[in-house]
Design a protein around this nucleic acid. Structure first.
Lengths: 113, 113
DNA sequence: TCCTGTGCTACACTAATTGTAGCAATACGC
DNA sequence: GCGTATTGCTACAATTAGTGTAGCACAGGA
């Protein structure tokens, strides 16, 4: 059973002190693997192991850290027997990134010097 | 022993080897201050000092690194006498983030526990 | 029982980021 | 000329964040 992770001390999102939510979000998403995790969960829920595989065998330490942060932010949830998946809020965020995805395709086609 | 750290050695975007541009983009944007820089340049060009101020006095070392990466990616350019500004490509990317900005506002209004 | 898979953590190591200081070049006013 | 201020940018030690490997406790299934 998941034990309440009590000892997470520092997790306040940088920029949140400014009172501008975009700063807090930009900071959270600007941490390694955050965007990638949301991206990989875009279609189906994944177990922690499957997510690790999808994320190019990233370190479980940092994946676990990011998952905790994303869960606290309300973007991701852990469903018993089904692994991690996006919440409604997470799906909303992900949809905003679809545009970025399409942009990435166009971007890659340009001479990136 | 501390190694002789030469600057600007490795900057290939992680994930680019997979051939999936979204991975390369997610990795580039997932580095600290990348998203923030694009955000701060959304309306006007800024000199390096002004950008540093806008970015909460972030270290010039990393800002310079990110600016170089973003310039190589074609999102940002340095205009003599006018500082840094988004390119057409950068503006395009930034527009995709407007949706995320609006999302951030709604996100902050929810009980973030 | 022995497997296997899950979420998750410990640990030492390496890479990334920070903070402070400072450089060379340019442009001002004197 | 000289001082001074601003630009883009860099050095470097210290700190923080992330990596990689190993392993834990728990929950089925055979």
């Amino acid at each position: 059973m998941p034990k309440p992770a009590s000892v997470t001390k520092k997790r306040a999102v940088r920029g949140s002190r400014t009172g501008r939510p975009i700063m807090a979000l930009l900071d959270l998403l600007g941490r390694r693997w955050s965007l990638r995790i949301i991206w990989e969960l875009r279609e189906a829920s994944l177990t922690s192991r499957a997510l690790r595989t999808a994320c190019d065998e990233a370190s479980p330490t940092i994946l676990q850290t990011r998952l905790t942060e994303l869960r606290e932010a309300g973007f991701v949830e852990l469903v018993a027997g089904d692994g991690y998946r996006l919440t409604g809020l997470g799906k909303e965020l992900q949809e905003n990134f679809l545009a970025v995805h399409h942009f990435a395709e166009r971007w890659s086609k340009r001479g990136v010097s």
